[in-house]
Nucleic acid binder design. Sequence first.
DNA 1: CCGTATAGTTAAGCTGCCTCAACAGTCTTG
DNA 2: CAAGACTGTTGAGGCAGCTTAACTATACGG
Lengths: 185, 185
Amino acid sequence: MDIWKRFGEKEVSHSMAHYLQAVASLKTEKGHARVGDIATHLGVSKSGVTSMLRSLQTRGLISHEKYGCVELTANGLRLAERTESSRLVITRFLTEILGVPEHVASEDACMIEHLVSPEVSVELLKLTSFMRSDHPAARQFLLAYRATPHNCTDHSPESCAVCQTSCLRDSLVRDVGTANERAGA
Amino acid sequence: MDIWKRFGEKEVSHSMAHYLQAVASLKTEKGHARVGDIATHLGVSKSGVTSMLRSLQTRGLISHEKYGCVELTANGLRLAERTESSRLVITRFLTEILGVPEHVASEDACMIEHLVSPEVSVELLKLTSFMRSDHPAARQFLLAYRATPHNCTDHSPESCAVCQTSCLRDSLVRDVGTANERAGA
DNA sequence: CCGTATAGTTAAGCTGCCTCAACAGTCTTG
DNA sequence: CAAGACTGTTGAGGCAGCTTAACTATACGG
């Protein structure tokens, strides 16, 4: 039981991932990324940007000279693109296949985009693609899936293909809406 | 574009979630959870545990008096159970539906378990359950899905149901195996 | 070419989560 | 019931990532 500590060993942290994405998006949007732009884009102070840029430069993900524009290195671009792709794939899967509301999907995708391994993202892309294709099995499946009620009122571990010793759903449904309250507030 | 900053506003942090889970699991395993047990279980120092317990107590998630055993409050138990259920659901979805290797699934699940909203977990449970049920549409789908190659060699945005402007897969596949290298090292 | 506005940097300080070292409380055992 | 062995706490310190305040560099109009 040591995986959890590797949280901090990810190639980039949550913040770093968003800084890289900000740089990439500003580059395409306005042709350059400067400290002030990044600060505005992310809603942080300029000094925060400066120090994060130092850290990203040390990691070889960007290049930035004093008072100059910020450039992504090949490695930084790779990470930015991968994170962005993950985010898109996850969002589409959540909204289009799982049918989760837009704002929940966006929020969840934003939280986990950089944590999900490329392996999983690729498989998620495959599944979502196939689900949305016109393959008859996919069409049939979605029709049947949407038509089936999943109230789980008669739930029992024996009848459930996923739960084993206890109903997982019970511990999840009671918290549904928790995030919405915050979003609505 | 401000969602990303709400990362720190989650009900519990990554660390906290694992502390709660550790307490819950020690309680069922050996009947009680003490500082030393938690430290061993999580691979952190006892002093780290002490200070985290203070923080969790402040948040009303545990109760702990000096030199005593640690107890989860109702709220703490709710969170621990929810996190654990999310982890199980995500892991099963990743291994059984997406077909991702065990160690990748475990690692990813451990990273994101506390970040995905209950809404998403519930939907993931529904989908996984249905997929693994004996409903003919599910059987058919899985057969067809497994049989279809997803090499994406002939990929073009127009032919892909998910990618729009560019091939998302390209930015993902080049990084596949990155995590494995680390796991293998 | 100088003065001022704007953009960027440094410095100091905060919180979260960890460490190690030292101290204190509890338990066991002769 | 005291000695020594654990178990747990406190304290000081480190790193990440943020903040504000104060300083510096650049750029632009008169």
